[in-house]
Lab assay of single mutants.
Amino acid sequence: MALNTPQITPTKKITVRAIGEELPRGDYQRCPQCDMLFSLPEINSHQSAYCPRCQAKIRDGRDWSLTRLAAMAFTMLLLMPFAWGEPLLHIWLLGIRIDANVMQGIWQMTKQGDAITGSMVFFCVIGAPLILVTSIAYLWFGNRLGMNLRPVLLMLERLKEWVMLDIYLVGIGVASIKVQDYAHIQAGVGLFSFVALVILTTVTLSHLNVEELWERFYPQRPATRRDEKLRVCLGCHFTGYPDQRGRCPRCHIPLRLRRRHSLQKCWAALLASIVLLLPANLLPISIIYLNGGRQEDTILSGIMSLASSNIAVAGIVFIASILVPFTKVIVMFTLLLSIHFKCQQGLRTRILLLRMVTWIGRWSMLDLFVISLTMSLINRDQILAFTMGPAAFYFGAAVILTILAVEWLDSRLLWDAHESGNARFDD
């Protein structure tokens, strides 16, 4: 018995066209964080690309023209004298008006014999932002004059995390709450300039795509075929072959399989920071003279006294001054041990922890910024005066060393310790 099946006739004509040209192939790229070699397709503007294995951002879609970056830099340069030299806060102490600005706080630190601690604050609040705007201006002028731009481009990517104007702005709020127990506070004209400078700096850093600047100024022929001998440069993120001198053909720094002496430098910085954190938390970090009496505060006791007036601000200072430094030390110690013992479990967790400490590390400088600003506000000789204690130097040095330890660690070593050939990683 035959089955009668109805015929289905399409209502619209289906047209099949042959592909007349070869589909576009992607360029081969190595991930600078996990060293995976993959094919990167062509990316349009405002599109980002991520590593298929570790999800690290390979290409950032946010990109401004150099002219727009230069305009932002010149605007920031105009704001800087007002943000640093004009009063941020006014207080009335014992019937006398006192003005506080950024430069005055750094000068008070240096004047009291601790120039190293003052230079830490100076670099993060004044030096690094000033280098940022002058570097962008150098790129703008240098591109037109045919100057060598490689050193500036190499420095810009590392400079971003040292620009800490946003953290200093939080420190202004913390210092205001600490001082309000002794005097009446009012915002100064410099505060508005400083807030504007923070906003412009944040926007500029978020749109400063150094890798795209490398592509514009020093374009290189990408690798179009897969080759395990391809290496990625950690300076400019170019994937290719080393030249005859073993250097990256684009930025001219040595092109090595792994960062040289990464573990040794990381261990040295980490152990030194552990040693410095002990006096930083045991010795007094601030000293207040009130009517001839002397009151010393460690980091913890200062947080407890701050909690009596504002528990939320005390929580912020606790996280930045105690929780973050010790968390960074514990995480980095764990990561280094996992590399030495070739741990194969929990790779995803370790990668996330490394990215976390990379982002939060700079916030530990908050305590030094609060001390710097408070020193310029309260300084009335023996009637009422505020000065920093010996722990300030140890704390600042420990924070900087932990930042350097994270920067010096080559994250690809975590993958080397893991089993080879993993296309995915999980716990």
Rank of each mutant, 00 (worst) to 15 (best):
M1D: 00
L3S: 09
N4Q: 09
N4Y: 07
T5K: 11
T5E: 08
Q7P: 08
I8N: 09
I8G: 04
T9G: 08
P10I: 05
K13P: 04
T15A: 09
V16F: 07
R17K: 07
A18V: 07
I19K: 08
E21V: 06
E22V: 08
P24S: 07
G26A: 05
G26Y: 06
G26I: 13
Q29S: 08
R30T: 05
R30V: 07
C31A: 00
S39E: 05
L40C: 07
E42P: 05
E42Y: 03
N44G: 06
Q47E: 04
S48W: 15
Y50D: 15
P52G: 06
W64I: 13
T67W: 12
T67Y: 10
R68L: 08
L69Q: 05
L69T: 03
T75C: 13
L77V: 10
L78C: 07
M80N: 05
W84Y: 11
G85M: 04
L88P: 01
L89Y: 04
L89N: 15
I91T: 05
W92R: 04
W92N: 02
L93I: 04
N101R: 01
N101C: 03
N101Q: 01
Q104M: 09
G105N: 01
Q108W: 09
M109C: 11
K111P: 04
G118R: 03
V121A: 11
F122Q: 09
F122Y: 15
F123T: 02
F123E: 03
C124W: 01
C124N: 10
S135K: 02
I136V: 09
I136W: 09
I136D: 02
A137F: 15
Y138W: 07
Y138Q: 02
W140L: 15
G142W: 03
G146C: 05
N148I: 04
V152N: 07
L153H: 04
E157S: 15
L159G: 02
E161P: 15
V163T: 09
M164H: 07
L165N: 11
Y168G: 07
Y168T: 05
G171F: 00
G171E: 01
I172K: 03
I172C: 11
V174Q: 01
Q180F: 14
D181R: 01
I185S: 02
I185H: 02
V189W: 09
V189G: 06
L191Q: 04
L191W: 03
L191V: 10
S193L: 02
F194E: 08
F194W: 05
V195P: 06
L197F: 09
V198P: 07
L205V: 09
L205C: 13
S206E: 09
H207W: 15
V210L: 15
E215T: 13
E215Y: 14
F217E: 05
D227N: 14
K229W: 11
L230C: 15
C236W: 00
H237T: 12
H237S: 12
P242Y: 14
R245N: 07
G246P: 05
R247N: 11
P249F: 10
I253S: 10
R258P: 07
R259Y: 11
R259M: 14
R260G: 09
R260I: 08
H261F: 11
L263M: 14
Q264G: 03
C266F: 05
A269S: 12
L271M: 12
L271I: 14
V275A: 11
V275S: 12
L282Y: 11
P284H: 10
L290N: 01
L290F: 04
N291T: 15
G292S: 12
G293A: 12
R294Q: 06
E296H: 12
D297Q: 03
S301V: 05
G302E: 00
I303V: 15
I303E: 01
M304R: 10
M304F: 13
L306K: 00
A307Q: 14
S309G: 13
S309W: 15
I316M: 13
F318T: 06
V324L: 15
V324C: 13
F326K: 07
K328L: 00
V329G: 09
M332P: 06
M332V: 12
L335Q: 11
L337T: 11
S338P: 13
S338R: 11
H340T: 12
H340E: 10
F341L: 12
F341Y: 12
K342H: 13
C343S: 13
C343T: 11
R348P: 13
I351R: 14
I351F: 12
L353Q: 07
M356T: 12
M356D: 06
V357W: 03
V357R: 00
T358C: 12
G361D: 01
R362M: 03
R362F: 02
W363L: 02
W363P: 02
D367C: 00
S372W: 06
L377R: 01
I378S: 00
I378V: 04
R380V: 02
R380N: 01
F386E: 00
F386W: 01
P390E: 08
A392S: 07
F395T: 03
A397M: 06
A398V: 10
I400G: 06
I400L: 05
I400D: 06
T402H: 06
T402F: 09
T402L: 00
L404C: 13
E407P: 02
D416A: 12
A417I: 09
E419Q: 10
N422E: 06
R424A: 07
R424V: 10
R424G: 11
F425S: 14
